[in-house]
């Protein structure tokens, strides 16, 4: 399974998390075997397609959702209700059908024997959950997660909130230098909003630490065809627009031309 596949799969289980966050679990052994940490699926509620067709209307685009968990054919998506597409997903219950295109994208590179810092913000949490499961047996991990408020944070080693409602007060990148020094970090992974990733990339670059970021982008096809999700990647003098859905979503932070985004 080299290229993303199109499937319609029933939701096996739905779990409520805080506020607008929820988990949807599906079952597919072949997709599960193909998926890697850092990859994603283009997801849509099948009802969105069917209801639209019945009404003679056109449904909206699929939304890229990263893999939260993937074990033995059990695939989980942690979703935050933000717009129209995710609102339709938030209505779904066990037994409802999802449309899926994936697994898509490159995924995180996996290392051994490293002292790793995970940095996530808001809905950047889910791919980190899958990633830490892949890393935990062969590396030391310290995981920082930040959100706007209490409803945006989830289990990890160090929590930050912008309103100070729980954990440390401020933005998660504010604690990076301290933890890098304290835990002698030699590898960083991050996922979250673009400004957060840009700050994290600046810190890792200053300290000369290897750093992989998972980027988010508006997508149309989600499979590498339309080039709509492209971001500038390369050196300062020699870069190209690479597709977040195909060459990404994981890029070396040093190669992302943040100044052009």
């Amino acid at each position: 399974m080299n290229n993303p596949q199109y499937r319609q799969r029933a939701i096996q289980l739905r779990e409520e998390l805080s506020d607008d966050y929820f988990l949807l679990w599906i079952w597919d052994e072949a997709l599960g075997a193909a998926g890697k940490a850092g990859q994603f699926y283009d997801v849509r509620a099948l009802a969105s397609l069917k209801d639209s067709q019945n009404a003679g209307k056109i449904p909206k685009l699929f939304k890229p959702i990263s893999i939260y968990d993937n074990q033995g054919g059990r695939i989980g998506f942690m979703i935050k209700k933000v717009g129209e597409g995710t609102a339709a997903l938030s209505e779904l219950r066990a037994g409802d059908l999802l449309e899926l295109i994936g697994p898509a994208g490159n995924g995180f590179p996996i290392f051994q024997g490293k002292r790793i810092l995970l940095v996530s913000g808001g809905i950047g949490y889910p791919p980190m959950w899958y990633l830490q499961k892949e890393l935990i047996n062969h590396n030391q991990i310290y995981w920082m997660h930040g959100g706007a408020r209490q409803g945006d944070v989830f289990p990890c080693d160090e929590i930050w909130t912008e309103d100070g409602s729980i954990g440390r007060h401020g933005r998660v990148c504010g604690g990076m230098r301290e933890n890098i020094q304290k835990y002698d970090i030699d590898l960083i992974y991050s996922c979250g909003p673009m400004p957060m990733l840009a700050s994290a990339a600046q810190i890792s670059q200053e300290l000369g630490i290897e750093h992989y970021v998972s980027l988010e982008s508006y997508m149309a096809c989600g499979i590498g065809v339309c080039h709509g999700c492209a971001v500038p990647i390369g050196t300062k003098d020699d870069w190209d627009y690479l597709r977040v859905c195909k060459e990404g979503p994981v890029f070396n932070a040093e190669e992302v031309r943040w100044e052009l985004l």
Binding site: I58, K60, L61, S217, Y218, M219, A220, C226, H227, G228, C229, A230, V231, P232, D240, Y241, L260, L261
Partner: peptide
């Protein structure tokens, strides 16, 4: 090279 992002937006129609 193509155009700078954002390159896409889904409208009402």
């Amino acid at each position: 090279k193509g155009n700078p992002p954002p390159r896409l937006y889904e409208t009402e129609a």
